[in-house]
Design a binder for these strands. Structure first.
Lengths: 411, 411
DNA sequence: CTATTTAATCCACATTATGGACTTAATATG
DNA sequence: CATATTAAGTCCATAATGTGGATTAAATAG
C-alpha cells in the first residue's frame, strides 16, 4: 500500500481551506522571493508560449539571457520543463534549444464525491489527464467516515499507479456537492452531510472545494474556453462558478454562485431553502424529471428526442426560468460568456432556446452585447479535472518550493 | 488660472481606463521593483498601525531595522509620513520616534457628475477630506462638452486651492452615473449621454468610473465599515458595488452590479431596459415617487414621518422587491454585509424591515448567517470620496513613483 | 552614577539580476 | 571549402538591495 509521500505531498492531516482573498498584509520581498517570482514568470511564459528558446524567453520576460538560463536550468533539473528540438525553418545563426512544459514528473490528484460516485483523476503539469477512475457507490446510505475511507483507498491506488509511471503527486483537491468555507463543508443535501470537515478524514493533505467552483475551473483549464465566464453546473441542486480574468470568484465566505436559489418567481412554490420560487424548483433535476415523467436524465433526453410533449414543455419551462435567473446573474456579475454544464449539457439542445430568448430580450437594452451561451464540452469529470488543475496551476504560479534545492520548510 | 501640474499629475489627455483584471503576464521582478514593493509594505503598515516606531515596523514586516530605516527616510523626504512623539508609558530603553501617515503633501481629487450636480473633493493621504465643493446645475439640458468644461473649471479651482494649502494633487477620478468600460461611458440615461469618453474632454488625466462602484469604495474607505459588503446606491437607477476583501469586483467588462435590472417579477411591468419586472420598476426613485405621490425624496420622507398610507405602502412594496433582488444577489455574490446608500439611506427606516424579512426567510436555510443590513453613513458624497480614495490607495499601494528620487519615467 | 534596555544606525556580507564579452553552432557567400 | 555573418547560450565582473551583527544613542532602574 503506497503512502502518498511522493514529492512534497507528505502524510498528515491539515486541510488547507481556500479562504477569502483577504486583505492580508502584502509580504515583504527578499532576495529569495524575488527569485521565486521570476521563476514563476519564466515557467508561466513557457506554459503560455509553448516551446520557446531561452533567448525568446529573455526577450519576452525582460530578464537577461543569463538569468533565464539559470532558471531554465533549475526547472529542467526539477523535471518541470524539457528541452526539445528547436522548430526553425532556414533562419541563420545558432539554433536555440526550445523548452516546454514537461508532464513527466509533477502531477496532481483531483477527487470528487457525488451522491452516486467516487472518482479520481491525475493530471500532469501539461494538464494532460494521465489517469481517471470512478466507482459507482451510493454515498447517501453511509456515514461520511465510511465514504471518506473508501475515497482514501481510491486515492492511494491512483497515486501509486501514478508513481509507477514516474509521476510525483504534489497535491490534491476534493470536490464536494455543497458550499465550503475554510475547509468546512457546510451542508451537502445530496449526501445528507452537514458540517463535515472532509479533509480531516483523509490521511493526506487536501483542499476541499465546492463542486460548482471546481467545475468552472475545470472548464477554464480543460475546456479550452475563454477566461471570463459563468459556468452553470446543475445536478440535484444548481450551482454556478464565476471565472473572471482566469480567477475564480468566491465571494466573502466562498459561498458565491448559489444560482439554484436565485428567485425566479417570488410567489412561486416553496423551496427546501425556506424561500419560494427559487430556480431549483423550475430547473433542478428533480423538478425536470417530475414534470417530464422521466426517471433520469438519460431517459429524459430520449423522451425529448422522441418529441414527447410533456418533456418538451418541462424543458421549455426550465429554460425560461434559467434564462430569468441568468439575466439577474449577468446583471450582477457581468460574465463574458455563460457555459451550461451538469445536467444542462445533455439538455442544451432543448433549453438553450428559451434561455437565449429570455436573456437577449431582457439584457439587450443595458449592455452592448449579451453574453454568449455555450455548452460545456466536459462531461461529469469537470470538477475532478478542475481539482487537479487547481493544484497544477498553483505549482506553475509558484514553482520554487518544488525545486530540488528547495529549503525543507524549516521555520 | 492654475494648471494641474502639481506633482505627477501632468497636463495631457490620457484616460486611464480601469480595465479588467486580465490575466496579464506577471512582470519580472528586478532590484528596483523589490525595493518598490517593500516600500509599499512599509507604508501600508504605517497606515494600518497608526503611529509606529521603525523598530516595530521591522518586527511586523519581517524586514530588518536597517532596511526599514532607509525606507522611512525616503518616505519622510517625500512627505508621505511624518515623525511624531513616541507614545510610551514608563517602558525602559531608548524611546523610539513614531512615524505615521502625513496628510501635508500628497492629495487626490474626486469628481462627480450627476443629473443635477457637479461636485469635487480633495482628500489627503490620511483620507481626510480637505476640500469639498458642489454646484447645482442641470446637466440634462446641455451637451457633454459643455458640462465637462464646467467640471474642468471646478476641478482647476479645487486643485489651485489645494496647492495654496501646500498639497500636491497626484491624480483624479471621475464618477459618472452609468456603466464604464475602458474609460468609455457606455450610457448614462440620467444625463442623456451615450458612448462618451468623458476623460478625453478634460485637460488633465482622470480615471472614469461608475458612480455605484466608487460609492462602494467610498463606503469602504470613508464609511469605516467592514471589508466585505454590497453597497446599494440608487437614485434614478439602482446600482450596486461589491467589495470583497477590500477589492472592488467589476466583472468581465466592468458592468457588474446592475442591481436595478435584476428580475423581481418575470411577468411584471415593462422596463426601459427591454425586460419586465426589474427591481427598478418597484424600488427606483421614479416608481417610489409615483406610488407615493411625492415630488422628491425629501417630501417622501416627510410623508412617511406623517404616516401617509400611500407612502408607507410604496416603501413597503419597494422594500419587499429590494429584498427579493438582494436575496438573489446574496446567493450569487455572497457579500458579508449589505449597505443601503443612495435614496435608500434616508428611507432606511421604512424599507429595512421588509428587506430584512425577505432576506432572512429566503436565505436562512442555505447559509449559516444572513448578511447584516446596514445604512450608509455617507451622504451623496460617497462616490466623490471613493474617487479620491481610489487615487490615494494607489499611491499607498505603490509609493515609489512619488518619491523625490523617482525616475522621470524615461522608457 | 552605573547597569540595563531598547531604538536607530553603521558596516561587512550574501543574494540576485545586469550587461557586455566570449563561445558555440548554424546559414550565407565567395 | 573557407570564411563571414548571425543568433543562442554561457561566463564574469558589477550593481542593487536586503541581512545580521556590532555600535551608538537615549531612556529607566537601582
Amino acid at each position: 500500500m503506497g503512502s502518498m509521500t511522493t514529492g512534497s505531498m507528505t502524510t498528515g492531516s491539515g486541510t488547507t481551506g481556500s479562504g477569502t482573498t483577504g486583505s492580508m498584509t502584502t509580504q515583504a520581498v527578499r532576495h529569495d522571493s524575488m527569485r521565486a517570482r521570476n521563476l514563476a514568470v519564466v515557467l508561466g511564459e513557457v506554459r503560455r508560449s509553448g516551446p520557446v528558446t531561452r533567448a525568446a524567453l529573455a526577450e519576452i520576460t525582460g530578464l537577461t539571457k543569463t538569468t533565464v538560463s539559470k532558471m531554465v536550468g533549475d526547472l529542467l533539473e526539477a523535471g518541470m520543463v524539457a528541452e526539445s528540438a528547436a522548430p526553425r525553418d532556414g533562419e541563420r545563426g545558432r539554433p536555440g534549444t526550445a523548452v516546454s512544459l514537461s508532464g513527466d514528473r509533477v502531477a496532481a490528484l483531483g477527487l470528487e464525491i457525488t451522491a452516486g460516485h467516487l472518482s479520481a483523476c491525475v493530471a500532469d503539469l501539461t494538464l494532460t489527464v494521465r489517469l481517471r477512475c470512478a466507482q459507482a457507490v451510493d454515498n447517501r446510505s453511509r456515514p461520511p467516515v465510511e465514504t471518506m475511507a473508501h475515497l482514501q483507498e481510491l486515492a492511494h491506488r491512483a497515486v501509486d499507479e501514478a508513481r509507477t509511471a514516474g509521476l510525483s503527486v504534489v497535491g490534491s483537491t476534493l470536490a464536494v456537492p455543497g458550499p465550503v468555507d475554510g475547509g468546512l463543508l457546510h451542508t451537502a443535501p445530496n449526501l445528507g452531510w452537514r458540517g463535515v470537515r472532509a479533509g480531516d478524514l483523509l490521511d493526506f493533505p487536501v483542499t476541499v472545494e465546492n463542486e460548482a467552483n471546481l467545475a468552472a475551473l475545470g472548464e477554464l483549464w480543460f475546456g479550452g474556453g475563454p477566461g471570463d465566464f459563468l459556468h452553470v453546473s446543475g445536478e440535484t441542486g444548481i450551482g454556478a462558478g464565476l471565472v473572471v480574468g482566469g480567477e475564480l470568484f468566491r465571494g466573502a465566505h466562498g459561498l458565491a454562485g448559489e444560482l439554484g436559489h436565485v428567485v425566479v418567481f417570488p410567489d412561486g412554490p416553496d423551496c427546501r431553502c425556506g424561500g419560494r420560487g427559487c430556480l431549483e424548483r423550475y430547473a433542478g433535476q428533480e423538478a425536470l424529471l417530475r414534470a417530464s415523467g422521466a426517471a433520469g436524465v438519460p431517459e429524459l433526453t430520449e423522451l425529448l428526442r422522441a418529441g414527447e410533449a410533456d418533456a418538451l414543455r418541462a424543458c421549455e419551462r426550465a429554460g425560461r426560468a434559467l434564462g430569468v435567473a441568468l439575466t439577474s446573474a449577468v446583471n450582477l456579475m457581468d460574465p463574458g460568456t455563460v457555459v451550461l454544464g451538469g445536467i444542462f449539457a445533455p439538455l442544451f439542445e432543448w433549453v438553450a432556446g428559451p434561455v437565449r430568448e429570455a436573456m437577449s430580450t431582457r439584457l439587450a437594452g443595458m449592455r452592448r452585447s449579451v453574453p454568449e451561451l455555450a455548452v460545456s464540452r466536459l462531461g461529469g469529470d469537470a470538477a475532478t479535472l478542475g481539482g487537479a488543475g487547481r493544484v497544477i496551476h498553483r505549482v506553475i504560479a509558484d514553482p520554487a518550493p518544488h525545486l530540488p534545492t528547495a529549503r525543507p520548510a524549516v521555520p
